[in-house]
């Protein structure tokens, strides 16, 4: 490009006056970087205009007279540091609050979990209480049955090599039921079952009252059994599973005679 023609066009004077478009300003700036001659021209135009405009000023103003104002503005800049403490305090409070909320939330969750556990325990206890009540009721029934004045108590002693075994029969003739307390018997071994017999003595005739299939799993080992016989004695034998038609005498654990009514 023709640098001289560009300079002579007067565009640089307008540049210093600030009367060019943004695009033209950019253009002049770039040309100044490339061509020292253009830069020099701009600097001289500027210097001349600066001198001319300065000569209009009626009096000089010392920079010191408003250095304070810049310092003032610095002080003003510094002053917000006081309110900053408020904002710091605010932030600190917010963080503490947030922390507190989180802690409370954590606490709440823990408490809810604990509450859940307690609730479960409570339900479990309720079930236990229910069971206990039921047990108590059953036991009461049992006790009442046994205490009934019509009850005949028949102790069954251990026989032969099973001397340590024992049992008791409480016989309520009125309702044709015996309650067998078999706590003194061991658990029936695998494949075997206890069988209860009603006996008449002269002649010795055994009548099966049935097998106790749930013996091993029963807690109180008291079994109500129907008995409509005119029993004179009761015996318990260990028989193969399913029971036998007649008692296996070698496996007679306990035997007891019904006392004759006075």
């Amino acid at each position: 490009m023709d640098i001289n023609a560009y300079i002579e066009s007067g565009i640089l004077e307008l540049y210093v006056a600030g009367k060019l478009s943004e695009k033209e300003n950019q253009e002049v700036y770039e040309l100044m970087q490339k061509h020292p001659q253009i830069l020099q021209e701009v600097l001289e135009i500027e210097a001349a205009v600066v001198k001319l405009t300065a000569s209009v000023s009626p009096h000089a103003i010392d920079f010191d007279s408003f250095r304070d104002k810049i310092d003032d503005t610095k002080v003003v800049d510094l002053q917000p540091k006081k309110p900053n403490w408020i904002s710091y305090t605010g932030w600190a409070a917010s963080i503490l609050l947030a922390g507190g909320l989180l802690w409370t939330l954590g606490k709440k969750n823990t408490l809810e979990e604990q509450l859940q556990i307690v609730e479960t325990q409570k339900q479990y206890l309720e079930i236990q209480i229910e069971d206990a009540r039921e047990n108590l009721a059953n036991t009461k029934n049992l006790l009442e049955s046994i205490r009934d004045k019509n009850i005949i108590a028949v102790p069954l002693g251990g026989q032969g090599e099973f001397a340590s075994s024992y049992a008791k029969v409480y016989w309520n003739k009125a309702d044709n039921t015996i309650y067998l307390d078999a706590e003194g018997l061991p658990n029936a071994p695998e494949g075997k079952v206890w069988q209860v017999w009603s006996l008449t003595l002269n002649p010795l005739t055994p009548t099966s009252l049935g097998t106790i299939d749930n013996f091993n799993t029963d807690d109180n080992k008291i079994f109500p059994i129907a008995n409509a016989n005119e029993s004179q004695a009761f015996g318990i034998t260990l028989e193969p599973e399913g029971g036998s038609d007649s008692p296996t005498m070698e496996q007679l654990y306990t035997l007891g005679v019904v006392p004759t009514t006075p």
Partner: peptide
């Protein structure tokens, strides 16, 4: 500074106002 003061003074035609304005401008 003086140039700016001159330009401002030329427009407002008042020395005190020009002083004040020029300081505002530089601040």
């Amino acid at each position: 500074g003086e140039s700016i003061h001159g330009v401002v003074f030329n427009i407002v035609k008042d020395s005190a106002i020009a002083d004040e304005l020029m300081q505002d401008v530089f601040i």
